[in-house]
């Protein structure tokens, strides 16, 4: 079975839950920016949660199906039609051979997850089909999908008419709140900067992609004065190159915070002031440029409680679709 990409939208990539285990070599985990939505899309069509889907950002692709199959779209809100007839998001539906799925304009969120029963069946690299263009891994020879690509689809057993209840669909609020655990090189900025970082409203900048999301609009952060350590470089935001955590927040020059995401560089020479907690990483994947954002300070126990909340939400989706 196959499906054909008639038009790819802005950037549509094959993603699954990624390839953990190679970050020490500069190869990131990758995979869906919004993992909960990818899992939900897979569960809707009866796939294992880590099956490969299409992740489309800001614009939907146009897809022609080469066989009868079951499809579901989760994540961002975007009207869609199958051969001109409206179909609902977060709900599985049948498609017939030769039918075409099209998308309208994005109304909420940023990324769509399009699952087909059986999953996209392109060859995996290092155990994952997730597209990582910088390292030419996964996807179609490492790249995003393009018009004319015919993608293989596995054998599925999905059923139409299954749905995820609205209260189990998670989208960022406005302003979006991203919870942050201070740490790493938090001590490098002054007390005033530590306060302003959390007090100020930031907005998502244009440079927001799978590697990282940049934010602007808050006050610049002042550094605690010191003589720079040997090997770090002259700028006060420089450190001796070290590893980066997923979700860590670097602020080159103290001006625009960058939150590293699934396709993060594995290390570098900029200080980081802490990290967005694991429970809120999915939310970043649904942020559009210009969205107002507040960083909210939490401690470890709050971070772990938020993590448990996310597991509970996923368990509810699993229960409802079992």
């Amino acid at each position: 079975m196959t499906l054909e990409i008639v038009s790819p939208g802005l950037s549509t990539t094959i993603q699954d839950l990624g390839r953990p285990g190679y970050f020490h070599l500069g190869i990131p985990e990758g995979g869906a920016m919004d993992r909960l939505s990818l899992r939900a899309a897979n569960l809707l069509v009866g796939n294992p949660e880590d099956a490969a889907c299409l992740e489309a950002v800001f614009m939907g692709p146009e897809i022609r199906f080469g066989a009868d199959m079951v499809v579901a779209v989760a994540g961002a809100t975007m009207p869609m039609t199958l051969d001109g007839a409206a179909v609902d998001g977060w709900t599985s539906f049948e498609v017939k051979k030769g039918q075409t799925l099209k998308f309208g304009f994005l109304t909420e969120g940023a990324r769509l997850y399009i699952a087909v029963a059986g999953g996209i069946d392109t060859p995996p690299d290092l155990g994952s089909r997730a597209t990582y263009p910088i390292g030419a891994l996964g996807g179609i020879e490492g790249r995003a999908v393009a018009a004319g690509d015919v993608l293989p689809v596995g054998q599925g057993t999905g059923k139409a008419g299954r749905t995820v209840a609205p209260e189990l669909r998670r989208m960022p609020g406005r302003p979006a709140e991203l919870r942050v655990l201070p740490g790493l090189y938090w001590h490098r900025i002054t007390e005033a900067a530590q306060e302003s970082f959390f007090a100020d409203e930031w907005t998502v900048a244009a440079e927001a992609d799978r590697m990282g999301y940049r934010f602007k609009g808050g006050r610049p952060l002042e550094f605690v004065e010191r003589e720079q350590p040997f090997g770090a470089g002259a700028d006060p935001s420089n450190i001796v190159d070290g590893c980066y955590s997923y979700g860590s927040i670097q602020v080159p020059g103290g001006t625009e915070p960058i939150v590293l995401h699934r396709d993060a560089v594995s290390g570098g020479g900029y200080f980081t002031l802490g990290a967005v907690i694991s429970a809120d990483m999915d939310l970043i994947g649904q942020l559009q440029p210009n969205t107002p954002v507040r960083f909210v300070r939490v401690d470890m126990e709050e971070a772990l409680a938020a993590r448990r909340d996310q597991v509970a939400m996923l368990d509810k989706i699993r229960g409802a679709l079992a």
Partner: peptide, 14 residues
């Protein structure tokens, strides 16, 4: 800590 999933150990600043 780097968020709730990482521990970062710096042997030396330089």
């Amino acid at each position: 800590f780097g968020g709730d999933e990482h521990i970062y150990v710096e042997m030396d600043e330089e």
